[in-house]
């Protein structure tokens, strides 16, 4: 019976066996979590944010716990795109799951070069990170205005030979404006939300907890904001939306699908429960069985108003 349920989704040419993807920056390159479950169960893996050259990241502490969530200021520590291609893709290809390369840069030229390199690499899609709150240059500077997004996306579009996903920041007044700019500039899909800029202070020492003072908030605490943004954006654009922000289980996945997401990413919840990704898939499947849904597409945008 259960075999009849079709969990597969297709996002702008990227086909996923199920709509649950590991969120960038929370899953490394998959190696650590492969000790807990078969990575082939995942719809896809968005790898740690990549840059042209290796990056050391921000000074510690990089993590602060907040009610029902965390702040992080990791700051895109990564081995660089070439090390990713040489050392990590061969490992990830041992599994039957989509590889999504998450790319960042300081300048438009960096983004172009990243997309040029990744277009020739064995990845299934490119997710442009225009929304990291933890690096000074680039990223957010482009990602927080419609004109910035239009500039980067239109330039990389010309070079991109893979499905192009643009990841949006929630730290703006009107996320729909950004979403429309990305769509108009040629994005194949959108992913949202990246983390919400926040801060934590230790009253005892009177100092900020994070070494970088501010950081990005994620986890269950951000879910209502994320759901709202996914709902608004998916109504504002025609391209598919990948929703994320605080998803911890199958019910959360269903909620994001109903709000209009075509797929979801799960991140922070996995730090607490290493089986969160797998349980999100199982929970979705169970919901579908119980509600006589045969295909995920029946749920996408299915919110009853």
């Amino acid at each position: 019976m259960e075999n009849k349920i079709d969990l597969a989704v297709n996002i702008a040419g990227l086909s996923l066996k199920n709509p649950v993807i590991a969120a960038s920056g929370t899953f490394g390159f998959g190696r650590e979590y492969s000790a807990f479950f078969d990575l082939s169960r995942l719809g896809g893996i968005a790898v740690k944010g990549l840059t042209l050259l290796p990056r050391k990241g921000n000074p510690p502490p990089r993590i602060a716990e907040t009610p029902a969530g965390i702040l992080n200021s990791v700051g895109l520590q990564n081995p660089g795109v070439h090390a990713f291609i040489d050392d990590e893709i061969p490992f990830l290809r041992r599994y039957d799951t989509a590889i999504i390369a998450n790319a960042s840069g300081n300048t438009v030229e960096d983004y172009e070069e990243m997309v040029r390199i990744l277009s020739e690499a064995d990845v299934d899609a490119i997710e442009l990170n225009l929304s990291c709150p933890n690096v000074k240059e680039g990223c957010m500077a482009f990602g927080s205005t419609a004109s910035g997004i239009a500039r980067v996306v239109s330039r990389v579009r010309k070079l991109c030979k893979k499905p192009l996903i643009v990841k949006l920041t929630p730290n703006v007044t009107d996320i729909c404006e950004l979403a429309c700019a990305a769509e108009a500039a040629g994005a194949d899909a959108l992913s949202l939300i990246n983390t919400l800029l926040g801060m934590a202070i230790d009253a005892k020492t009177r100092r900020p907890i994070l070494g970088n003072v501010m950081g990005g908030l994620s986890g269950p605490a951000v879910k209502p904001v994320a759901l709202r943004m996914v709902y608004q954006v998916s109504k504002a654009v025609k391209i598919p939306v990948i929703g994320m922000g605080g998803i911890s289980n199958g019910t959360d996945v269903v909620e994001f699908l109903l709000a209009g997401a075509s797929a979801v990413m799960v991140g922070t919840a996995g730090f607490v429960n290493p089986y969160a990704w797998v349980q999100a898939i199982e929970g979705l499947e169970q919901y579908m069985v119980e509600n006589n849904c045969w295909s995920v597409s029946e749920l996408i945008g299915g919110l009853i108003l």
Partner: peptide, 17 residues
């Protein structure tokens, strides 16, 4: 000792120089 996220090396939270 450092504040940890995942505890297994995936999130790169507990950095030390």
């Amino acid at each position: 000792e450092e504040r940890m996220g995942c505890g297994i090396g995936a999130c790169l939270g507990c950095a030390c120089k």
